[in-house]
Nucleic acid binder design. Sequence first.
DNA 1: GCCGTTTTCGGCCCGACTGTTTTCAGTCG
Length: 572
Amino acid sequence: MSKNTEIAKIFDQIASMLSILDENPFKIRAYKKAALNILELNEEIEDRVSRDDVTDIPGVGKELANKIKEYVETGKIEEYHKIQEKVPLEMTELLGILGLGPKTLALLYKELNVRSLEDLEKVLDGDEVLNFKGLGQKKVDEIKRGIPLLKESRERTHLGKALPLAESIKKEVENIKGTEGTIVAGSIRRMRETIKDIDILTISDNTEKTVKEFTKLPFVKEVLASGSTKGSVITNEGIQVDLRVVGPESYGGALQYFSGSQAHNVKLRTIASKNGFRINEYGIFKGEEKVAGETEKEMYGTLGLPLIPPELREDRGEIEAASEGRLPDLIELSDIKGDLHMHTKWSDGKATIQEMAEKAMELGYEYIAITDHSPSSTIANGLSIERLNEKRLELREINKKIKGIHILMGSEVDIKTDGSLDYPDEVLKELDVVIASVHSGFKMDRDAITKRILMALENPYVHALGHPTGRLINGREPYDVDIDQLIEAALKHDKALEVNSSYLRLDLKDLHVRKAVDAGVKVIISTDAHRTQQLLQMRLGIGTARRGWVQKKDVLNTLEFGALNEWLKSKK
DNA sequence: GCCGTTTTCGGCCCGACTGTTTTCAGTCG
């Protein structure tokens, strides 16, 4: 875990402990906001400390800057340990229980000596807990129901799993009579790599009835809330789904509000209020008068801004860019002309070359590259040079047989631990597309793994670096590579960095790809598909790229075949 | 605790739902 992540976590926990101590809510928010912005930071916080510009991080003032310095220099923050003498750290986790907030937790802590989850469970089963004002049996039951939920849903859900689920729920909502304009909002609309819950917005003139019917849909396991304009349920998969129902006159306001992010909305509302406007989920108001609300475009337009694409709404400078007329013209799925990274039965894929090609044609692609593994990836059935040559013959035959798509001969070549590549140069030279990737030795130290990858980028026959940080979302930490050096080297040697669209990877991630294209590095967005259906995951990579402010001009596989091929051949 | 083309002090986004209230507090997003 990087220092950034560690410090953000500590600040977040301090915020939680302060909330249980009933401290100034704005102080609590200050800690939370700082934590968020440190996570968003696209560089190592140690570098900030050594340059002495920690306070340039939004939400970090003198006090928090000192704590950051203290952590970087000594490895701990005294304040953090001091507060723990008042509130045990374990208590902060209990805040994750649905329906249990800081006030109730403070009460249980003070009056009934709750110090842990175990204590809490005991207390909830006793009678004493009912002796307090504002705490009844229903509340106790709600908290009890929340405990197993906390245990099972620690992790956020992968976008690649949540998106199809959200789309199927959207269809069911569309089937409710009288609904219109149903849309998936929230972090899914922003294409965040993981999501906590599914947010659906719909229009209806009988909002209460629509919410009622929603809570009775077959996928609903449990109803958390059901009111006159919104409902919350848990699905059989254990994911929370929130439905918001509004009239057509408020659709834009609700969509804007419901798409978030929270940070984006808070900033937008703060700016609006400085200009005499008030924003809520029904629209924009000047005094009592409603001045916008029907469409999102109108909402942003009223504030003098162009419509900001959902993927950018993270308070990462998009509002400033919008007001200065320099929003990027984001890449779209339809810009993609081909897919340069996929596997077939020749290594660990499930489909043949021909099947992959036919699927790619369905998607309207001009070209694909078949990039099976190299020999060192033995568990992935990597190809020996002999099998590589056999594969080339088959590929040539299919190219003759199938018209309308160019099938390129490629390989995803292992970068070995010493930085050398898994095929000799004279073999690499004969390939149309060479993607170099790390598949082993993830634990090397920063210096070593960075040097190792830099060596691969220096090889003249390499086109792109595959899944550059090696992370698996919710599964494996990225290897400790210096991303700045990778970007520098990619630029110097004219190599592409990959945005791998596999929902488990999404690597480069949004912040990194933004840094890369800012520096002028080209990227490829590819699926790493191991079966035909996975070619459709391209949209996840596009989402990640859009979150990274990527434009069509930054992406090599938006080029027509001729132009792409010219670039590929420049590496020979 | 942060921050400043309204401010270095006095603000800090805004509303829905629920439960235990008889006008609101707590929680959530």
